[in-house]
Design a protein around this nucleic acid. Structure first.
Lengths: 227, 227
DNA sequence: CGAGCGCGATTTGTATACAATAACCACACA
DNA sequence: TGTGTGGTTATTGTATACAAATCGCGCTCG
């Protein structure tokens, strides 16, 4: 979108993801307009996108809140992402050119380097990881699929989980990517699908372990907070 | 959304689906505002939704056009819909209450009645069909899944395909639904998934047969037109 | 003859004022 | 005490005016 609207989107998104507003807290369009420095019109446009991505939600009477993700919500998204991204891997295996596979290798070399630093460069890891998955989705050549996945991948994962990965988690991710590249090089779509499946499912469990046990309540961090 | 915005959405959608504008034709927000009788503000909101549903598209320079679906686009959507809705059927099989199964049966009785009229009441069929599938998706209890499917199911299917179904197609649909209900009653999620898969894949082929052979170009009705 | 260039007309993007709706609060009444 | 009811404030929804971008077209200049 255009300047003001795009800026508002990025600013609001950053504002929410930074954690400076609690989950479940109310926001108003005026507030956001002041924060972002643009008028309510582009703010409304940005908010609509963020609602789409489920970062913001509206009450039944149109009031605006920061979304409050339960563990079940997260699991649901991982399941859907796994389903769609396995499909993407399968299609990509049939379509990736030699050059594209080489590009994936390069991306994963970068990712691996980020992991093997001490301490690991998590930001660089996340960026390389994002690029790697995006390249696969692009190669699947299914615009609708890309669009659906965008909504699932964007919001919840990067959310506040950036720093829950141990180095061994990161290393395993890098190895998964290596195996994916091998599957692609072999043009084995079944293999690619299977690797992608376990890759994402493991990511879910890593996440789940950090979030807490299964029987828990919805992520209820709105009462007690930082003293 | 609220009154004006919702009205604009419905009116524009109907306007496009009615076929009174050709695929690929340009629209302007002013035009749509006049047609719908509201100002550009709610029109823009409605247009965003329709872009989301891929009924409208914007050029690289933000100009607005009626989307032009190729056969590949349609197949892609059917594939994705099948993947997601099979998942929904599987989950629904584990969750549907006795009452909900009875409600599905009732819906399908209505659908069958519509089919067995002569001539078949296609509008009533479509409505019952929509309600049937929606009930299953709801029962899957996966809000994200529902949201993703909404975008896939809404746009392309009803599009301009309402009247390509033969009575035998419709009868087969009714039988599929019966079998789905049976699978649900048996709480057999594998069965439900399988039936849903063949149900949707057959729908695709019915559609594809009507649209034309595989090697075709994108639906290219924009050059030669009315003299 | 064709490629680039300017300029009026069209179209989209943004700000702002106002209208409609929902939440909040205080107070009366049972 | 608690429950409903009025008015007041906060918040979202819509219209409108204007700004910015884009297009179409005729023109010039090579």
């Amino acid at each position: 979108m255009s300047r003001a609207s795009e800026h508002a989107y990025a600013a609001i998104r950053a504002h929410v993801l930074s954690g400076s507003v609690a989950a479940g807290e109310q926001l108003t369009e005026d507030q956001l307009a002041q924060i972002t420095g643009v008028s309510r019109t582009p703010v409304r446009e940005a908010v609509r996108r963020l609602e789409d991505e489920l970062l913001l939600v509206r009450s039944d009477t149109k009031r605006l809140f920061v979304a409050d993700w339960s563990r079940d919500d997260i699991e649901e998204m991982f399941v859907l992402r796994q389903m769609l991204e396995c499909h993407a891997a399968e299609r990509a295996a049939k379509r990736l050119s030699r050059e594209q596979i080489a590009a994936l290798e390069a991306l994963n070399r970068d990712l691996t380097a980020a992991v093997e630093q001490s301490p690991p460069d998590v930001a660089r890891f996340l960026e390389a990881n994002r690029a790697f998955h995006e390249a696969i989705i692009d190669a699947a050549h299914s615009p609708r699929l890309g669009q659906l996945l965008a909504r699932l991948v964007e919001a919840p994962v990067v959310l506040r989980t950036a720093r829950i990965y141990s180095q061994s988690d990161l290393r395993q991710s890098a190895r998964d990517h290596d195996e994916l590249v091998a599957a692609f090089a072999a043009r084995d779509s079944d293999w690619a699908r299977a690797v992608m499946g376990s890759h994402l499912r493991r990511a879910f469990h890593t996440f789940a372990r950090a979030v807490g046990p299964k029987a828990d309540e919805p992520a209820n961090d709105r009462d007690g907070s930082e003293p």
